[in-house]
């Protein structure tokens, strides 16, 4: 169906698509109602990975996958209001591919893979290759998002988001960190501070090189990590915040989230 009507906009929770239609931002030729596809509403564990259907709402991720995918669950908790979390989905976030989408940073930090399907077959796209531009993704016109795949957290994960209100707020900027102790590696994801969600690759490389996994956190490492995360962003001045503030806030969030994750990691090792 999608192949036959590539202009059709798939709709799941409608928390984004319907808003754009109501405000006359888009008038798609057709809507493709995915709510009739029950497979999209389920998640399963396959070969040690979680395969989460594109239609699983945030509220279910919080309730059922909070332990296994903690970074994503924390991000899900910050999405809109309870009503929005009841309807909104990670699949919708991916479909819109807005740089401000709350799911993206933890998907990036946690090495998620996006499963997309078309009449021609299935493609598996790593999250860091999925976001191509402002609201542009690697999804082709004839493809639909089927699910995302993520390994259960192998270390502490944190998500942090700055907004100018204490709830129900779109990110001024956001940051996710995921420790991968088995690989001696730290994953990152930056939201709302560049044309696309992105990893802070230099910051990740720096930690891979400089982090002593047996020791307490070196304040100098922490400081440099914050700097590199801020440098990885290319934010703009807009109505939600200034570019300077976004860089500053990213550095603070990077230091704080890494500290929390590190403290958790050391506690687990000590126990």
């Amino acid at each position: 169906m999608k192949a036959g009507t590539p202009g059709a906009v798939p709709i799941q929770g409608g928390t984004d698509v319907m808003v754009e239609i109501n405000f006359d931002v888009h008038r798609p030729a057709a809507l493709l109602d995915l709510n009739q596809v029950p497979e999209l509403f389920t998640w399963e564990r396959i070969d040690g990975s979680y395969r989460v259907g594109a239609g699983v709402p945030y509220v279910q991720i919080i309730a059922e996958l909070g332990h296994e995918l903690p970074g994503l669950a924390q991000a899900a908790r910050t999405v809109g209001s309870p009503q929005i979390r009841n309807r909104g989905t990670v699949g919708g976030n991916l479909g819109a591919a807005s740089p401000a989408g709350d799911s993206h940073p933890p998907l990036l930090a946690g090495d998620a893979i996006i499963e997309v399907a078309s009449a021609a077959g299935t493609r598996m796209i790593p999250a860091h290759e999925f976001y191509l531009g402002v609201k542009k993704s690697a999804l082709r016109p004839d493809e639909l998002i089927r699910a995302f795949w993520m390994k259960p957290a192998d270390g502490p994960q944190y998500f942090s988001k700055v907004g100018t209100r204490n709830a129900m707020v779109i990110a001024v900027c956001s940051f996710a960190v995921a420790l991968h102790p088995s690989e001696r590696r730290v994953g990152t994801g930056i939201g709302s501070a560049a044309p696309t969600p992105r990893r802070a690759l230099e910051a990740e490389a720096f930690l891979a090189e400089s982090l002593d996994w047996e020791a307490r956190m070196d304040p100098e490492v922490l400081r440099r990590f914050g700097e590199l995360v801020a440098a990885a962003a290319s934010p703009i001045d807009d109505v939600r915040g200034t570019a300077d503030y976004r860089r500053h806030a990213l550095a603070v969030m990077a230091r704080r989230t890494l500290t929390w994750a590190w403290n958790d990691y050391r506690k687990v090792r000590a126990a």
Binding site: Q74, R77, T78, Y158, F159, S160, K161, V162, G163, N166, A167, V169, V252, M253, R256, W260
Partner: peptide, 16 residues
């Protein structure tokens, strides 16, 4: 965290 500035967005655990 809902008592803290930033609320559920988890910008702090009390730091700052």
């Amino acid at each position: 965290i809902r008592n803290l500035p930033g609320g559920a967005s988890q910008t702090t655990h009390g730091e700052g």
